[in-house]
Design a binder for these strands. Structure first.
Lengths: 163, 163
DNA sequence: GCCATTTGGTTCATGGCGTGAACTATATCA
DNA sequence: TGATATAGTTCACGCCATGAACCAAATGGC
């Protein structure tokens, strides 16, 4: 990324007209904002703080999680995970059992209520995304997805450069 | 949005195959993550807390801003703006002058240092977005932008439904 | 087998983000 | 001129996130 700032616009300016650049910045900003607002709406709707919400979603992928694993998946430090897990346990959405093999480890899993809540959340998420897609004609939808994938690839490439 | 949950998948399921829905959720999530990480990177790079960073950007649009105006643009309450503005003033990036017409109002504007910092930030932002776009062939880029615009429109429509 | 080190977690202090309520000071309107 | 509205500040609160200090269990080398 440090090289990026040096490698200047001049040598590639011809390739990307200015209006496209502006348009792109605007689009990305708006999309980002949509996602943020949706996130906020979700948290209110399901009465969970953002971090707990995101943590709960992780249990859709795996039956048992450890604090360490959550820290890794959520990309936060372990002390933060302690807090989040505390919150979810206090709300009786997850439970903690000792790993019989290694008593340092707490295995975390959904309670029945947690499972129910997670199901509701996933249903909601699907619903929202479905609503977005269903507004498009089938081939338009296909084109959008294809191009979104191209964009994602490009953005992730650039992200890697931002160490 | 409350209606959304009720209106169920069944009546439109045919229109959006499940794999598209999954793909879309995944894509959006990844894109959102990219944006978030970029935001974080920027804040570190320019040594500004997120809120102050976003606030500084507003001065690219208008020469003078009031606390109230900032609150509106940033979508936060005025007490929060007080803090943010304090921070930027302490860093000597913006300055405060009394409105001669109405002494309740503080007019906020960039200092020369603030202007310089903002320019650097904008340069960086353009650079990043340019890097993303320049990876695509010209007509691919055009297609991506067109489809992104369609997506944005659809997402904003749905957002409106989430009161 | 035992002590040093590693590993999984918790707690605490710190700082940023954001809200709502109480308050000050100025402006405006009846 | 007095009631009300407006612009800002301050404060208490809660969530997000980090890093350091700490505890307890596991492991590894001698």
């Amino acid at each position: 990324m440090n090289q990026m700032a040096e490698k200047n616009v001049s040598d590639t300016a011809l390739e990307v007209p200015d209006y496209q650049l502006k348009q792109f910045q605007e689009l990305i900003m708006r999309l980002f904002q949509c996602c943020q607002e949706r996130m906020q709406y979700q948290c209110e709707r399901f009465e969970l703080p953002d971090a707990e919400f995101r943590c709960l979603l992780l249990f859709g992928e795996e039956r048992y999680l450890t604090a360490k694993g959550i820290a890794h998946k959520m990309n936060v430090v372990k002390s933060r995970v302690s807090k989040i897990v505390d919150g979810l346990i206090k709300k009786k959405l997850i439970q903690r059992i000792k790993d019989p093999e290694d008593s340092r480890i707490s295995l975390l899993s959904l309670t029945p209520e947690g499972y129910k809540k997670l199901s509701k959340i996933n249903e909601f998420l699907q619903d929202v995304h479905h609503q977005v897609l269903v507004q498009m004609a089938p081939d338009q939808r296909k084109a959008v997805l294809t191009n979104l994938d191209i964009l994602k690839a490009s953005m992730e490439t650039i992200k890697e450069m931002m160490v």
